[in-house]
């Protein structure tokens, strides 16, 4: 008589249907947004791809840490707290943010074209505008986080090393809305422009180079035009590299900074705002045009 082993069974699980609810366009948009954020941060990717964004965040945070450290060491020695960098200057001053955008935006856009993933994405409940919103939103969200977190470190650190934390908070209450607004404006500008330029390339390096060329060419052009003139000229507004910093100044000071190229130009603030809106609006319109074939 042979003993049987009741545990030794093999089951063919076959196919199990899904009986839950499926989300629609908003769920698809959110899922693509999350996937793009994960990709940009190197999550579920190799350690080399993880290294880059976090090193850049660390670099962007260094000025805040140095500033807080100096304030801590010198506290009580001077009447005023020593500030190496102000909140206004810290918005977008780090080249790390620009490098991050230049490498991240192509990375979340170009592989979709290069690997021909778009037909898979658009065979799902996703339209062209959803795709644009998810991709621009993802890059903008990360740029915002990477621009805002060092500011939080700076603010909290300064507050803790100050003689009276509550007084520091009330004295600097305005930056609590100025900083997030200015960083958000900067993030939207960089993200929309970088993603729009990247949408024309299939190779990441080409897209990154194209973005830097656009920013540098407009910057150099503006410099040549303003240097050649006798004084401030409205042509300084074509400097796309500088534009978000002029908007930042409008947010912090209510006017173009006196040392800016647009200073002294009548209606310089409105001009800078107009260029900002044209760049962001034009970039988003370009993206919607690029993905119009799946618009429904």
């Amino acid at each position: 008589m042979t003993a049987t082993n009741p545990t030794g069974r093999v089951y063919d699980r076959g196919y199990r249907p899904y009986d839950g609810e499926l989300g629609g366009r908003s769920a698809a948009r959110l899922a693509l947004f999350k996937a793009s954020v994960r990709r940009a941060l190197g999550i579920r990717r190799s350690w080399r791809q993880k290294l880059f964004p976090w090193v850049l965040l660390a670099i962007a945070t260094v000025p805040a840490i140095v500033n807080v450290g100096v304030a801590y060491i010198t506290r009580g020695r001077f009447e005023d707290t020593i500030e190496i960098i102000t909140y206004r200057e810290y918005v977008g001053v780090s080249t790390a943010l620009l490098v991050f955008v230049g490498l991240t935006a192509p990375d979340v856009i170009c592989p979709d074209r290069r690997n021909r993933v778009l037909p898979l994405l658009f065979s799902r409940p996703l339209t062209g505008s959803d795709y644009v919103a998810a991709k621009v939103g993802a890059v903008a969200a990360i740029v915002f986080a990477f621009g805002f977190l060092p500011q939080v470190v700076l603010f909290v650190g300064q507050m803790l090393v100050s003689d009276a934390a509550l007084d520091y908070l009330t004295d600097n209450a305005t930056v609590l809305w100025q900083v997030p607004l200015a960083v958000a404006v900067l993030a939207l500008y960089y993200a929309s422009l970088a993603v729009a330029i990247s949408s024309f390339a299939t190779r990441r390096i080409v897209a990154a180079a194209a973005l830097l060329i656009v920013l540098l060419v407009t910057s150099v052009t503006a410099a040549i035009v303003t240097e050649g003139g006798s004084g401030s000229t409205a042509w300084a507004a074509v400097n796309l590299l500088n534009n978000p910093l002029q908007i930042r100044d409008l947010i912090f000071e209510g006017q173009i900074s006196p040392d800016a190229d647009l200073a002294g130009v009548t209606g310089g603030g409105a001009l800078a705002l107009g260029v900002y809106l044209v760049v962001v609006g034009g970039s988003l319109a370009t993206l919607l045009w690029r993905y119009r074939w799946v618009e429904t």
Partner: peptide, 13 residues
């Protein structure tokens, strides 16, 4: 899994 989420499935599902 990512394409499943974009198709409307909750992340865990």
């Amino acid at each position: 899994s990512m394409l499943g989420e974009i198709a409307g499935l909750p992340a865990r599902a």
